[in-house]
Every structure is written in C-alpha cells, then in structure tokens.
Simulated scan of single mutants.
Amino acid sequence: MTQTSALRLAVVLAGLMGAAGVALAATAAHQPDATRLGSASSMLLFHASAVAGAALLTGYGIARRAPGLTATFGFVAGAALFAGDLVLRQYAGHGLFPMAAPTGGTLLILSWLVLALAAVWPRPAT
C-alpha cells in the first residue's frame, strides 16, 4: 500500500469515526442511562480529529512516515476497541473481550507518544 493510499484510508476512517461519534452523542442525549455512549462518542470524536491530523502531519513529512502511520492507525484501532467495548456493554450487556476498553485506551496513549516521537525523530540526511 502506498503512503497516499494509506493516508486516504486513514481520512476515510476518520470520517466514519466522526460520524459514529456524532450518532452516539445524539443517542446518549436521548436515551436514559447512556453514560457509556457519551464516553464512546467522545473517544471517537477526539480521535477522528487525531487521525486526520496525524495523516496530514505524515503526508507533509512533519512526522516520519513509519511511526506517523503507526500512530495514525493506532488511533483508529484504539478508539475502535475503546468505543466498541462501551457500546457493546450498553446494548448487549457484555464487552468485546476482557480488558478491551483499557487495551484500547493504552493503545491510544501509546499512539500519542509514537506521534510525538515521529515528529522529533531526526530525518536521514539527503
């Protein structure tokens, strides 16, 4: 997969994450006892923006390619695990798997750190 197609995929996923985040926020506002959905919405909305930003930083060469893409897709996977676990708990009464939300949260934290490293990692001399 080329860098351009990977970044394009990331932006598509960011758009889907954003749409899902807004839908969950609306549902949380109108459904009783939906605090889990509010948290899931926030994670998706915040990290949809992070995915778009990390994709841009990587595409413009501000963040190194490999760690930039790792952080970008780490945001997608982490937010999906975190939000998916909360939504499943809300509607099905059980999570994705034990420790899914904390695993997703940890992946998000690591992705932020990888993005920071991707920006400060020296680029090879040309």
Rank of each mutant, 00 (worst) to 15 (best):
A48K: 03
V120L: 11
L110G: 14
T126P: 12
G15T: 11
L44G: 03
A54M: 15
A25C: 07
G68W: 07
A29V: 03
L37Q: 08
V114D: 06
Y91T: 12
A66C: 11
A101P: 09
A48T: 06
S41A: 14
V76D: 00
A52D: 10
P67E: 03
G59M: 07
L45H: 01
I109C: 10
G59Y: 01
T58P: 12
H30G: 14
A19G: 15
L69Q: 05
P122F: 03
A71G: 08
A79I: 00
A92K: 14
F75M: 04
T70V: 13
T58Y: 10
L117S: 05
L69E: 09
S49E: 00
L88A: 13
A92S: 14
L44V: 01
S41C: 05
L13I: 08
T2G: 15
A101D: 03
A101W: 01
A20C: 05
L108R: 02
H94E: 13
S5G: 04
L44D: 02
A80E: 04
G78S: 13
W112P: 04
W121Y: 06
L107D: 06
Q31V: 14
L113S: 03
Y60V: 14
T106E: 00
G68H: 13
M43D: 05
A6H: 09
Q31N: 08
A66S: 15
A50Q: 01
L88V: 02
L108C: 02
S39L: 12
A118D: 11
S39I: 14
L115V: 02
A92G: 13
Y60P: 05
A19I: 05
L107F: 06
S111F: 11
V11T: 10
A100H: 00
R8C: 01
T103E: 08
A6F: 10
A25E: 06
L117K: 08
A50F: 06
S5T: 14
V11Q: 07
T72M: 03
S49F: 15
F73N: 02
D33C: 06
G59E: 10
A100V: 07
Y91L: 03
R65A: 13
Y60C: 12
T4W: 06
S5Q: 15
A116Q: 07
